[in-house]
């Protein structure tokens, strides 16, 4: 059974009539050019934007959940994050427990261990490198323990080591019975780590399905307006512009 079903989701002038569904254990990648509506879709699912259409979670319309319940079930990691204060890593991660109104140290520690940030738990977040910070933001949403995890461009500006690190953490989280939806620009990483992909163009969904159904030369050329080289059989899979 689908964990989340979205039908006819629209956001004024930014997203039109989106239908998609996701099961537990699946990593769904949102791909498409800049301005296609990937971030808007994630924000609409998280309830941050006024939208029309229907979102069902566990078979229940999302409106039936209170804001706090929704925040326990769906967590969002926005693309751009900065702490206004020099909070410690531990304090940032413990913010993931705000919807639960607790500060369960076991869960917080587990999230920090999973993202490998436990070693610098007491350091101020503004003294960390970009890669370390990306893992701290991720630890915060993992400490939230959401059923559906929404992540917007988690690997932008990260080196290849941290890119793999972050994507593997998200993949592991999905395999523990959760759903993960990631907006991504890197099509090779999307092919490698996602189970399903949705391709967006100009606020609309062009295609949704298995990786090999979406990452086709014809579709990518139509949407990105460039010729592409695709080898999904390679290990790891390769998708490049020619």
């Amino acid at each position: 059974m689908d964990l989340m079903t979205i039908s006819g989701l629209s956001v004024m002038q930014r997203l039109q009539d989106i239908d998609l569904s996701i099961r537990a254990g699946v990593v769904l990648g949102l791909i498409g050019p800049n301005g296609a509506g990937k971030s808007t879709l994630l924000h609409a699912i998280a309830g941050l934007l006024d939208s029309s259409g229907q979102i069902e979670l566990d078979g229940q319309p999302i409106e039936q959940y209170s804001a706090e319940q929704r925040a326990r079930l769906i967590a969002l990691q926005p693309q751009f994050l900065e702490s206004a204060w020099a909070l410690s890593v531990h304090d940032i991660v413990s913010m993931g427990r705000l919807p639960w109104a607790d500060s369960d140290q076991q869960i917080i520690e587990q999230a920090m261990r999973r993202t490998n940030v436990l070693g610098f738990a007491q350091r101020p977040v503004n003294q960390l490198s970009g890669g370390e910070r990306a893992r701290v933001w991720l630890a915060r949403v993992l400490a939230n323990q959401p059923r559906v995890l929404l992540v917007d461009e988690p690997i932008a500006n990260l080196d290849i080591h941290y890119q793999q690190d972050v994507m593997q953490i998200l993949r592991d989280y999905a395999q523990q019975g959760h759903a993960v939806i990631i907006a991504l620009h890197d099509l090779s990483l999307a092919a490698r780590y996602c189970d399903r992909l949705c391709l967006l163009e100009q606020t609309q969904l062009v295609s949704c399905g298995r990786v090999d159904q979406v990452l086709t030369e014809k579709l990518l050329q139509q949407v990105f307006k460039v010729e592409v080289f695709i080898d999904l059989a390679a290990r790891p899979p390769v998708v490049l512009s020619r």
Binding site: H43, A46, A75, P78, L81, A84, M95, L98
Partner: peptide, 20 residues
């Protein structure tokens, strides 16, 4: 005070944490 903590990471994060 919970809202004040949540706002440390910006309004989007505070909103997504279910804070008003």
């Amino acid at each position: 005070r919970r809202l004040l903590l949540g706002l440390s990471l910006g309004e989007q994060v505070a909103d997504s944490l279910g804070l008003q």
